[in-house]
Design a protein around this nucleic acid. Structure first.
Length: 196
DNA sequence: CGCCAGATCCACT
DNA sequence: GTGGATCTGGCGG
């Protein structure tokens, strides 16, 4: 069953805490590629690590829109990163998906990644998973509640609260001290696909 | 192993 | 013009 708007419209930190264990599904040429979300991070409007903290721009506009849409952006000249917009329209917030554990379509993901990669090297890392799932800027603004190419659904197995760990976010050295230290990264304790 | 630079584009200043 | 919510391969210890 797909996650609904009521899941995404809450505080991004709460959404990020509950996304690990859910299943990210990408339908590519009729094939289901999917994996369990095992690592993600929350970003909020008044957060110096967040792209939206200086206000709306062409790039981050979707973060200011309604929840449950994707925010896909390009960094470092070669990587796409996948976020899910959270909170209500007008409150810019999103959750960066940092790692998944592959479930379906693993061979296709390996081809998309250039072959031979397994475990953490296949889908552990925000740019690795987008490459494995063929997610690029053309999917920016996708509505996860009604898209037929990308969505998030419940998994058959859930993760116990005690197996969710949290800590500071990765790669935000430019942020101010309190934001740098905020424990807004959540991951499945001990999962081999977590990026680090 | 770990460290570090290069890759390579585009939105924002 | 600058630098980034990253990854990879090459080099040195």
């Amino acid at each position: 069953m797909r996650l609904t708007k009521s899941f995404y419209e809450r505080n991004a930190v709460l959404v990020a805490r509950e996304l690990p264990g859910k299943r990210l599904v990408r339908c590519l040429n009729g094939e289901r590629l999917s994996g369990t979300i095992v690592e993600c991070e929350a970003y909020r409007q008044d957060d110096t690590a967040c792209h939206a903290h200086r206000g709306m721009t062409q790039r981050n506009a979707v973060m200011f829109g309604p929840p449950g849409q994707t925010y896909v952006y390009f960094v470092y000249g070669m990587h796409f990163l996948l976020n899910i917009v959270a909170e209500q329209k007008g409150h810019a917030a999103a959750v960066l998906i940092r790692a998944i554990e592959p479930r379906e379509g693993i061979e296709t993901m390996q081809k998309l990644r250039g072959g031979g990669k397994v475990g953490k090297l296949l889908t552990g890392g925000p740019a690795r998973l987008t490459q494995a799932l063929a997610i690029d800027k053309s999917l920016n603004g996708t509505n996860l509640m009604d898209s037929d190419v990308l969505w998030v659904e419940e998994n058959e197995a859930t993760i116990a609260d005690t197996d969710i760990a949290c800590g500071p976010r990765i790669g935000i050295g430019y942020a101010a001290e309190p934001d740098l230290l905020a424990p807004w990264r959540f991951w499945v304790r001990g999962n081999p696909c977590v990026s680090r």
